[in-house]
């Protein structure tokens, strides 16, 4: 693992200047989760429009650069996509979005927390149960 690979300029930029940070006035989905190991916390809100499209996606949270950059990037990717896209989203997609850094098992959880929050929220909205099968092993 090379931390120079993990903490690239773009990751630090999203960490320090998170896009889509904040709360929505009107939202259909509100999802929250935390990582007890790290204390990383994320809340995500989604406004669903016609055609089951995610018109607005915002998040608030605190935590390490990996978790916060990852969720911020994810909100950008998700915006404008249909809810079905979230069901297809895999952890590999998230790793790719982060530039495929070589994360150790405990940091994988940080990278995937945003995806978990989004999936939990969207699955709940669709009346389905999100199983954590897409996630890394417990640290």
């Amino acid at each position: 693992m090379s931390s120079a690979d993990i903490y690239r300029e773009v990751i630090l930029d999203y960490y320090r200047h998170p896009r889509n940070f904040g709360k929505l006035e009107k939202f259909d989905i509100d999802s929250h989760d935390s990582n007890p190991l790290c204390g990383d916390e994320i809340e995500m809100q989604v406004q669903v429009g016609s055609g089951q499209k995610m018109e607005e996606v915002k998040f608030t949270g605190k935590g390490c650069a990996i978790s916060q950059a990852s969720v911020s990037m994810l909100t950008e990717l998700a915006k404008g996509k249909p809810l079905g896209w979230v069901k297809e989203l895999s952890k590999e997609d998230v790793f790719k979005m982060l530039g495929n850094p070589d994360l150790g098992p405990s940091r994988v959880k940080c990278a995937l927390l945003g995806m978990k929050v989004l999936k939990t929220g969207v699955y709940g909205y669709l009346g389905a149960q999100y199983e954590e099968k897409d996630e890394g092993e417990l640290p």
Binding site: L37, C38, G63
Partner: peptide, 30 residues
């Protein structure tokens, strides 16, 4: 500074330095 302790621990680990990062089972103190 604004380096989260977990990021710091990851970077130090790469140098062979093992430190702890987190709330240390003392959330009231945090």
């Amino acid at each position: 500074a604004d380096v989260h302790p977990h990021d710091l621990a990851t970077i130090l680990d790469e140098e062979g330095v093992a430190i702890r990062s987190g709330h240390h089972c003392a959330q009231l103190l945090m």
